[in-house]
Amino acid sequence: MQRSPFSLVVVGCSRGGLAASRRLLEALRRRDHLTMVIVQHRGPEPSPLVSALASASPFPVSEAEDKEPLLPRRVYVAPPGYHLLIEDGHFELSTEAPIDYSRPSIDVTFASAARAFTRGVVGVVMTGGNSDGAKGAAEIVRRGGKLVVQDPSAAEAPDMPRATLEAGLDPAVAPLEELGAVVRRLALQMNEPAGAQR
């Protein structure tokens, strides 16, 4: 198996997601060879999400732009009002209809990440008030990626992590305090030299 250029951590969250994403970012270290894409449901109005995440992140944080190449050691946030797809090594935006009232849809980004980065993906489903992410998580697992779910019993909004747990995908489950460390370990494992894993 070839190694991925870097591990891709794709994160889905909704209500309560800002605080949870910050906790996740705080667990990362500057030299970690991974990139994170955060899909958080939010309204179309301008929000300080990027700057709120940047203060917790060791990597530069920005909203993904159309056709922008994914680089290692970055954090990209899905812009509101678009679906965010990953195709080969770059982003694509789409204004197709919202899915279950959500645009960005976590399922859309997860499924496209799974197709583009196959075994190099760690999907993370965190706090949120609906069931977006469960279908995309299944795609990640089907394509050989790893899945981590926030323990719903301690999540601000348990519906989203619970829906993914109910999909029967056998993910790692961790409370928010430990989530970042689990995600980081799985992501960095993927980047160890060939033969050191599997």
């Binding site: 190449p69 090594g89 770059h90």
Partner: peptide, 8 residues
Amino acid sequence: MARWSAEQ
């Protein structure tokens, strides 16, 4: 960047 994929 090329899509890296296994065993093609």
